[in-house]
Design a binder for these strands. Structure first.
Lengths: 120, 120
DNA sequence: TATCTATGTTGACATATGTCGAACCAACCG
DNA sequence: CGGTTGGTTCGACATATGTCAACATAGATA
């Protein structure tokens, strides 16, 4: 088969998305995509979970390491799922435990959105 | 009355708040305060309004300049109030119009929260 | 004063969200 | 195989949120 084409991999990642917030008004679509990420960090429990993963050694943590946030385990699971859907975390099962790790590019993109805006 | 005390002015501003997200797990109180700010940017309409103000010349904009986001005027007013309560915007009436401007320190603080975390 | 224009507030409503217990799935261990 | 532990999914519920129409307020202007 000589004419087999190599298709570009569909990137499942959230796009770095959007210019700095003070460059120009965001379009409806840009705002929609970006809001998902901010909303994910807009809950105290999720913020603590995220911070726990981010500050854990190796940049990843098992669910059992970070479940101490004062809500039930199903709720923890629900919030981790939200963070994952927003593209902020990824998860991987290794044997008995499930590990979550921070998605570095997305985090940097969010930071740029704000710091570039702040510096003006 | 000789023993009248001069009380320190209650600062109405939101504190810069909290270490970078990857330094250590946030406490419940830190997460509570920080989540308010992220939540404020976690709505598409608010994100567009904020971006409109931030990108407007002079760093401030009259409500009439930014009301074109596809929702009714009361809804715009409601969202601007939310952004103000979160400490992201401040407002001032000048004659007929009300001007909103970006609160620079808070924005920088949010950015630092993320970029410092991202650089690790 | 009356009246117009620019914003904010209120009240009502539909939908989204956070939370839990119960049930379920996945891997290990006896 | 059955039991135990780690984690997710489901179903239900109370509360929060986004939205609008109607009303209220503040300032300009006549």
């Amino acid at each position: 088969m000589s004419n087999v084409k190599v298709l570009p991999v569909l990137e499942p990642e959230i796009e770095p998305c959007c210019p700095p917030l003070n460059e120009r008004p965001l379009t409806a679509e840009e705002a929609e995509r970006t809001a998902v990420m901010f909303k994910a960090l807009g809950d105290p429990v999720r913020l603590r979970l995220f911070s726990s993963v981010a500050s854990h050694e190796g940049g990843e943590a098992c669910v059992c390491d970070i479940s101490d946030v004062g809500v039930s385990q199903p709720t923890v699971s629900h919030h981790l799922k939200k963070l994952k859907e927003a593209g902020l975390l990824s998860s991987e099962r290794r044997g008995t435990w499930v590990y979550y790790r921070v998605e570095p590019t997305v985090l940097a993109a969010m930071g740029a959105l704000l710091t570039k805006a702040a510096s003006t």
